[in-house]
Nucleic acid binder design. Structure first.
Lengths: 227, 227
DNA sequence: TTAATTTGTTAGTCATAGCTAACTTATTTA
DNA sequence: TAAATAAGTTAGCTATGACTAACAAATTAA
């Protein structure tokens, strides 16, 4: 690991690309993350992505062969994890101290994660007494950049009759998060899968003594622990 | 006042120029703030400033005649005051909750003031119980953008024998702020002017039962209240 | 295995916001 | 008041990071 990490001279855009690539590499564990996929994730043209990837390669954060899959170097990964740490700590702060709701935090945290100050983020961490998880249930990487990636079980993968506990939710979409709160689900909610309908993969679930039918798309974004 | 203020579509640079111009218009109450003066303040070329001023004029935030002095419109002033409010609230937060020192806060607050979220700043204000002054003793504008500009008395303007209390310090220079802390001055420190040396305008002051000689340049940046 | 489609790349354009160099207008001051 | 200096402006350049359009390579399907 070089000392590039301390100099912190990346632009907001460069940081965004590295973080996006990191998320894609984790989620799509199928092996390959390509240029257009990254472009899509960032809602940016493939040409822009191609340019930026080229730049990040010369800077030593990304590795790829021409027409090949994209990968992160240790440095690149380290920067991404630090960004995720910042993002999740800010989200935690906004929810716990500034009355933000689940669905409001993301956009603001997206801005705050680019603030450059080691002291700021470590003091914020200390101020909140070193929280382990963010408001969406995601693990917060520590100051050393250690990031335990827990294997994720989606609600959609369960069989009829399973009982589980809500561990975390995908924080990518505001409308999704609003929906989750509206029907009354919170972290640690106990959920029972009543019925899986083969026709459209929708699922009838029960929690808080109420029943609700959700789509597969919804259940794909809800992560649970079987109990 | 238009509703431009709520749309908040200014770039970081545009915001920086408006804030800088606002500060210059207050400090240099001699009447005229010019293009080069603004360039100097922002350590940017006069050409860049000229471009930006042109842009801010078409956007309705700045008024000036060709080769004439620069002025802010109500909208321009309002944006500047909101930035100052954000800057000072963040500084207060950093000092009171995150163990930042006087001289460390400025750079980070300079970044944080550009975060776009009305809720964020108003909740931060509430969280800190609506502080009236920032760590350097400067007044924090309220949510309505009301900003009481107190007339400033510099330590350098006092006569021999005067006794005063430190009200605020100029927060523009890190080295200056470090110097102030190092010799032991804090807000509310009681200071007596022992001697004003005509030769180089240096001043011998007494506080906390110690004596210290400071330059005029130093005393120009220390604001006091005569008691 | 050829054709169609998807994916990746390149070239050239645009806006923002900086710069230098050259020039014009204003203001001093000799 | 004329020359010197300061202040303001313009033209033209640079880098970043978007974009579209055109093209090349790789993959999939017929």
């Amino acid at each position: 690991m070089t000392n590039k990490l301390n100099s912190y001279n990346l632009t907001k855009s460069e940081e965004d690309y590295l973080k996006a690539l990191f998320h894609l590499l984790i989620d799509d564990s199928k092996g390959k993350v390509g240029n257009n996929q990254l472009a899509d994730y960032l809602t940016v043209s493939p040409a822009s992505t191609n340019n930026m990837v080229k730049k990040l390669k010369t800077k030593g954060y990304v590795v790829s062969e021409k027409y090949g899959k994209l990968e992160l170097t240790d440095d690149g990964r380290s920067i991404a994890v630090r960004l995720i740490r910042k993002h999740r700590l800010w989200e935690t702060f906004l929810c716990k101290y500034l009355n933000f709701t689940w669905d409001e935090v993301h956009d603001v945290a997206e801005q705050l994660e680019h603030i450059k100050s080691q002291k700021l983020i470590n003091e914020l961490d200390r101020f909140m007494d070193f929280p382990k998880k963010d408001p969406h249930g995601e693990v917060i990487p520590n100051a050393e950049g250690e990031y335990s990636i827990l294997p994720k079980v989606t609600l959609s993968s369960l069989e009829e009759g399973s009982v589980c506990q809500l561990v975390s939710v995908n924080d990518g979409s505001v409308t999704f998060l609003k929906y989750v709160s509206e029907i009354g689900l919170v972290l640690s909610s106990q959920i029972k899968v009543i019925e899986v309908r083969e026709f459209d993969n929708s699922i009838k679930i029960e929690f808080n003594n109420t029943q609700e039918t959700v789509t597969k798309k919804f259940a794909d974004n809800v992560f649970v622990k079987i109990i």
